[in-house]
Design a protein around this nucleic acid. Structure first.
Lengths: 331, 331
DNA sequence: TTGTAAGCGTTATCAA
DNA sequence: TTGATAACGCTTACAA
């Protein structure tokens, strides 16, 4: 593996100075066509292309965006990652996928992100509280941060997310119209503000309908298994007469787990005996085997806006966007 | 947003030279404890941490690995991405997710990867033929390439994948023992070598059992919808008497789409009327609503080996690893 | 152990 | 338009 050719080498080959070489590769630089041709030809034979690393050091911009993800159990992440990477690449930005876990937490990741001079940091659905950073605060020279698909817990960090209040309003209206009157809600991780948020709005809208006391099923985390366990626990401990008639789950993956238990283990019919609703509208939910009623987040819009903010084509600020109710057979 | 502190500034604050500052941040460098303490303290107050970009330029290693992905429809990608990013991070390497699509193809991506000096490039399940690069070949100074979860089509580019021959052998043995005798195979993209590979091995093993003529259902691409269409087309055009009794699909997502059609649209029972088998063992396949018999790739092993090769702890070479048959109710 | 010089491959700025 | 000088922030090699 030979070394890459440098601008200097190309310059010698073309009989010009290295700065002229740079100009040949700089759109809109002042250079004669003759020089440019000479340079491009020399570059071609030497197989030269500018070293982006050196460019980054000099320009102080890496064209790389860090995306923090901590919940890979949710299939919803994949299509959004696809969208995000596509749109970023369309703007000449690369996606650095950062796995937030026990060994590489937000603090480490943020410090690392600073050291690597990313152009921006996106917290994609990750839970992150301001206190976590401690005194460090947002360090000087730190890349601008954004929160995607979740409300922001950090003042000054803009969030682009689905409007949960509006979403839950639509959902409750729909369920009420369908005749459901004994609502339950399954939460994933308790500490997350969105968890509280969705649950909170859900309860609020039912209250406005004159119905108090939404039953809470706590799954503790986001996975089909957790959803299954929570549903099982509830169904085992409740009498058929007093049961809820509709279960809204904080996301689809919980809903699918719950639905499996409701039907396979307890032989209940969905939606006749117990209706189920999810959130995110992941693909398997739409399969005939489930027919899960869900709520679709405006992924494209969210991603487009986020990318526009990162590139500075839009002013960075919090935005809540409307999604879309997707009614199917489960409720 | 102030600029980041530099080693030089810390040096001035600590009353030493900037090289001493560097040493304080270099494990195993010769420096007195006194100096180190002074430096670390100054660094602390100035909130200094080394600039990784500058380091990369100087050391010619970025600690970044590019991962090319072109098929985001397969949910199997997500857990593997999680594993991969985790293991890479454990080695101090960051994952740059590169979306291969119409606008950003392998050639662009590879050139870009060279310019960015990634430490390695992983083709994760992407189809890429040698000719694509044309004359350029693998350019000098180009990062080492690896293929993950697919056979390599490029000589000299090591692939880490599941042993397809062994896998299909196990599957056919299992199906034969279960009494199935009229096999069908659903292919995704026709051009991919693994497609041909899996189908090829499948047909071979049936032949060894004395059964010729595996029926091919061509879905054309990898998605539940494509699987559904192919299954629909086949069932519509075949007479119940002459039909296959077991359908092996090239991957799970095709299998789920097919299974939905088989059951919901044609009212056939799985496995009694038509058994279905997939590949990858994605999560929804395991849900009670499907109970899809599948074959699990050794994801952890593949990823661990790949990372070990990238870090040089293992010699880079092609490896085929055994997976695991996961029998469920669908076959 | 510590300081110095040179170099990594660009870009920014100014002079010719 | 072109060439030259300085700078980006670090590492490597060498000298003190």
């Amino acid at each position: 593996m030979r070394k890459r050719a440098t601008a200097k080498e190309v310059a010698e080959a073309a009989g010009v100075s290295k700065w002229t070489v740079i100009r040949a590769f700089t759109p809109g630089a002042s250079i004669t066509d003759a020089s440019r041709q000479k340079v491009l030809q020399a570059a071609e034979t030497l197989n030269y292309s500018p070293n982006l690393l050196a460019r980054s050091l000099a320009t102080n911009t890496t064209h790389q965006v860090a995306v923090f993800v901590d919940d890979f159990a949710n299939p919803h992440k994949l299509p959004v990652l696809e969208l995000l990477s596509e749109r970023l690449q369309a703007e000449g930005l690369l996606t650095v996928l950062i796995n937030i876990n026990r060994h590489f937490d937000h603090v480490h990741a943020l410090i690392n992100a600073g050291q690597r001079q990313f152009d921006a940091v996106i917290l994609f659905g990750t839970a992150f509280r301001e206190e976590t950073l401690g005194d460090r605060g947002l360090e000087p020279g730190f890349p601008p941060m954004f929160v995607l698909a979740r409300g922001s817990q950090i003042p000054g960090v803009p969030a682009i997310a689905c409007d949960a209040e509006r979403a839950l309003g639509e959902i409750v209206d729909y369920l009420f119209d369908k005749g459901y009157r004994r609502p339950g809600f399954m939460t994933g991780a308790r500490t997350l503000s969105t968890a509280l948020g969705r649950r909170h709005h859900y309860a609020n809208f039912w209250r406005r309908k004159g119905i108090e006391g939404v039953v809470e099923l706590a799954a503790g985390r986001y996975s089909a298994e957790a959803g299954a366990e929570a549903a099982r626990a509830y169904l085992n401990s409740s009498s058929p007469a007093s049961r809820i008639d509709v279960l809204m789950c904080e996301n689809d993956i919980l809903a699918l787990g719950a639905m499996d238990v409701v039907r396979s283990e307890f032989g209940l019919r969905v939606p006749e005996d117990l209706a189920v609703v999810g959130f995110d509208n992941i693909e398997p939910g739409g399969f005939p085997a489930y027919g899960l009623t869900s709520y679709e987040q405006p992924n494209e819009k969210m991603v487009d806006i986020m990318v526009a903010m990162i590139t500075g084509k839009r002013t960075a600020k919090m935005m809540l966007l409307p999604g879309r109710l997707v009614p199917r057979s489960s409720a």
